[in-house]
């Protein structure tokens, strides 16, 4: 089982979390023209990286907050976690 360090609660088992996909995907800006390509990239196209992957998880059975997790997709090693509104350097 993966153990994820929730930035709000501390170290918690994976089964308390729900996966939310690639966190580097940004929604096209509100109230601006969006090209089909931009929308396609936002909704469907994914880099699907092998290696370090920044992703969203929700601590759904804990504090219910969305968080960002940096995890290696080839080893499952979790290196860093962030709050949802934290900028990742």
């Amino acid at each position: 089982m993966l153990y994820i360090k929730c930035p709000h609660c501390g170290m918690r088992p994976q089964i308390e979390f729900s996966y939310g996909g690639d966190a580097s995907v940004k929604r096209p800006e509100l109230n601006k023209d969006v090209s089909d390509q931009d929308w396609d990239d936002f909704v469907y196209n994914r880099k699907s990286l092998r290696g370090k992957h920044l992703e969203l998880w929700q601590h759904i059975s804990g504090c219910r907050q969305w968080i960002k997790v940096e995890r290696d997709t080839s080893t499952h090693e979790i290196s860093r976690t962030f709050k949802a509104d934290e900028e990742v350097a």
């Binding site: 609660c9 918690r12 308390e16 059975s61 804990g62």
Partner: peptide
């Protein structure tokens, strides 16, 4: 003592 958590 006097800790609480949400879990499954």
């Amino acid at each position: 003592k006097n800790n609480s958590i949400n879990s499954i």
